[in-house]
């Protein structure tokens, strides 16, 4: 009941989270929801990093430090991305990623 879990459990959860986020980023139309799904993908990767840092002796215990950097950059990405969504909404009155096709050849 209290024995340690194998590392594959955490890695599979991280992989499934990445896949769910990729699915949402591919099929949803709302640009804000696409951002949320990208955040889910980033969280799956961060979970994998922290699991490596805790389980593998070769990792040197720095997985959590990498995770902090990833979280900071993801926060920056959310700020810039939502600013772009706001700018697109202000000029085109939509956040549908299918309709924002001005730069499509």
């Amino acid at each position: 009941m209290n024995q340690a879990l194998p590392i594959e459990g955490y890695l599979v959860v991280g992989a499934l989270m990445f896949a769910i986020g990729a699915w949402g980023a591919l099929i949803r139309r709302n640009a804000v929801v696409v951002f949320m799904c990208i955040e889910l993908m980033i969280n799956g990767v961060v979970l994998t990093l922290v699991a490596f840092g805790d389980y593998l002796p070769q990792a040197g215990g720095v997985g959590a430090s990498y995770a902090v950097l990833v979280i900071a950059i993801a926060a920056a990405e959310v700020a810039v991305g939502l600013a772009i969504v706001l700018a697109v909404f202000r000029s085109r009155r939509t956040v549908n990623v299918d309709e924002a096709n001005l730069m499509k050849w």
Partner: peptide, 10 residues
Amino acid sequence: WGGQTEPGQG
């Protein structure tokens, strides 16, 4: 995964 994969290495 090489080495002994046990929790608590971090």
